[in-house]
């Protein structure tokens, strides 16, 4: 079953002198439970593509359907709610709320969703234990290593029970040990919760784990390959 359906997705940036086609007519579908890497050189359009997929950057033309909903036909308010309930984000520089503890960071999104306190507490505990830092539930991000912060970010992304998780260069700031460990974790989460993961990455280690690799260059899909990693 397709979680994401993309048709003729185009993004053109107009500067004063030149017109740049960051994404140039991409058509693609993503099925539930996929573990997909979007790769390509810097400036190839990976992040713009992911941003349009995540409802952050409005496409110049084309269509993004998530769970059958054309997200760019929603009002900005509806789109924010849609992101909250359907998309999990993992950022390169973790982007946790520094004044909240690991547990509160995970709980925060569920609070935005209006989930009851008991459910929030239970899920927060469960997720932090699942990502291996259950003992750091009361630690602020500044007291955690980069790898631990990114684990919290993964737990936060999973907290809202999204349709899929978008991760933009999630390993870029991590050392090799932390990268291996995080990839193992995300792979396990993918299997455990059947959550769809889409990464934008340069990292060969991420590519080695991905079961599908979409290569973008000059805003177009150059290759779309599937791999059996079992």
């Amino acid at each position: 079953m397709n979680v994401i359906e993309i048709k003729s997705l185009t993004k053109i940036y107009n500067s004063s002198e030149v017109q740049v086609k960051a994404v140039n007519g991409i058509d693609i579908n993503v099925k539930e439970g996929e573990f997909t890497a979007v790769v390509g050189p810097s400036g190839s359009g990976k992040t713009t593509f992911l941003n349009m997929l995540g409802g952050l950057d409005k496409p110049t033309s084309g269509e993004v359907k998530i769970g059958g909903v054309d997200i760019w036909s929603l009002t900005s308010r509806q789109l924010i709610d849609f992101r909250m309930n359907n998309i999990g984000f993992v950022f390169q520089s973790y982007n946790l709320i520094p004044v909240l503890t690991a547990g509160e960071n995970v709980e925060f999104i569920m609070q935005l969703q209006g989930k009851p306190k008991k459910e929030r507490a239970q899920r927060t505990k469960e997720l932090l234990e699942a990502v291996g830092i259950g003992d750091r539930i009361n630690s602020r991000p500044s007291k955690l290593s980069g790898g631990q912060q990114q684990r919290v970010a993964v737990a936060r992304a999973l907290a809202s029970k999204p349709e899929f998780i978008l991760a933009d260069e999630p390993t870029a700031n991590l050392d090799s040990k932390a990268t291996t460990s995080l990839l193992e974790l995300m792979s396990n989460m993918n299997k455990k919760y059947n959550t769809t993961f889409i990464f934008a990455t340069h990292d060969q280690r991420v590519m080695d784990k991905a079961r599908r690799i979409i290569t973008i260059e000059d805003g177009k899909i150059l290759k779309d390959e599937y791999f059996n990693r079992d």
Binding site: D81, R83, N85, F89, P98, Q113
Partner: peptide, 16 residues
């Protein structure tokens, strides 16, 4: 700015 952008991205609406 970046933190506020992240909050908006993960679903914190304008009123909040």
């Amino acid at each position: 700015t970046k933190e506020l952008g992240m909050l908006m991205a993960i679903g914190m609406n304008k009123i909040r």
